[in-house]
Amino acid sequence: MLVDADACPVKDEIYRVVWRHAVPVMIVSNSRLRVPGHPLVERVVVGDGFDAADDWIAEASDARSAVVTADILLADRCLKAGASVLAPTGKPFTTASIGTAIATRAIMADLRAGGDVVGGPAPFSKTDRSRFLQALDALIGRLKRG
């Protein structure tokens, strides 16, 4: 499992699930983050270059990978590598949904660039956390079954 960790709000939930399933996880970030001292948890600190963590995760992704990220463009790259991708809200990114997500992202960027005031994402909630736990547990179960 690979985690885009710099702004990931569900790292503690990830640890609980991977420990229960005995699945290794790589916590990838641009800066040194505190991670549990556990043999299944590996901290990967990449350079501080633009998209360095994204590049590392995309290159490490394959059909056996589960990736956790909120970054739509990284999700697209990982899907193209064959990985299963999950947002911290528990919403899966799929090959069927990623095009719409990319288009929406582009529209919102254009609106912001034009000076329009657009709201950001809703605050992260307990429901998001619960949905993520269920989705990650199901995803890892599917990957383990092959």
Rank of each mutant, 00 (worst) to 15 (best):
W56N: 02
W19A: 08
G115C: 06
A113N: 15
A83P: 04
K126Q: 14
D110L: 07
M26K: 14
P24R: 13
I107F: 14
I14D: 03
R112P: 07
A122P: 02
G37C: 01
A96V: 07
V35H: 06
G90H: 06
G49S: 00
L74S: 12
V17A: 03
V45E: 13
P123T: 11
A109N: 11
S84A: 15
L111I: 06
Y15Q: 14
G114C: 10
Y15N: 11
D116F: 03
A122F: 02
A63P: 01
G47Q: 02
V67E: 03
P92Q: 14
T89F: 00
L40I: 01
A58D: 01
R32E: 13
V17R: 04
S65K: 09
R64P: 01
T127W: 08
I27S: 12
M108A: 13
P92Y: 13
V117Y: 12
A53W: 00
V23G: 00
S61D: 06
D71N: 12
I57E: 07
V85G: 07
A109V: 02
I102L: 15
A87T: 04
T89W: 04
G49I: 01
L33T: 01
V46K: 11
L73F: 12
P123S: 09
T104D: 06
S29Q: 09
S125Q: 05
L111G: 01
R129W: 06
L73H: 11
D54Q: 01
Y15W: 15
A52W: 03
V46C: 05
E59R: 15
T94H: 01
N30Q: 15
L86C: 03
I14C: 04
A70R: 09
P39N: 09
V35E: 10
A58K: 05
F124V: 00
G49K: 05
D62H: 07
D48P: 03
T104Y: 09
G99Q: 12
T127I: 11
V118W: 11
A83N: 10
V25T: 04
I14T: 06
K80T: 04
T89S: 11
G99H: 09
A53D: 02
V44C: 08
G115T: 07
S31G: 07
A75R: 09
A81S: 15
G47R: 09
V17T: 13
R64C: 00
A109K: 12
P123E: 06
V44W: 01
I107K: 13
E13M: 06
S125C: 10
R105P: 02
E13Q: 14
V45G: 02
V23L: 05
S125G: 15
V44P: 08
R16V: 03
V18K: 08
R64V: 00
V35P: 04
L74R: 11
K126D: 15
V44A: 10
A75I: 07
D128Q: 00
V17D: 04
G37H: 08
A70L: 00
S65Y: 02
S65L: 02
G99N: 04
T89L: 10
A103M: 05
S65N: 08
R105E: 08
F93I: 07
P39L: 08
A60V: 11
P36K: 02
A60M: 14
K91R: 14
I102R: 14
K91V: 09
D62L: 06
A106S: 12
K11L: 15
V23Y: 06
D116M: 00
V85E: 10
T69E: 00
A87N: 12
M26L: 08
P39D: 11
P88A: 10
A63H: 14
S31K: 10
T69M: 02
D12R: 05
K126E: 15
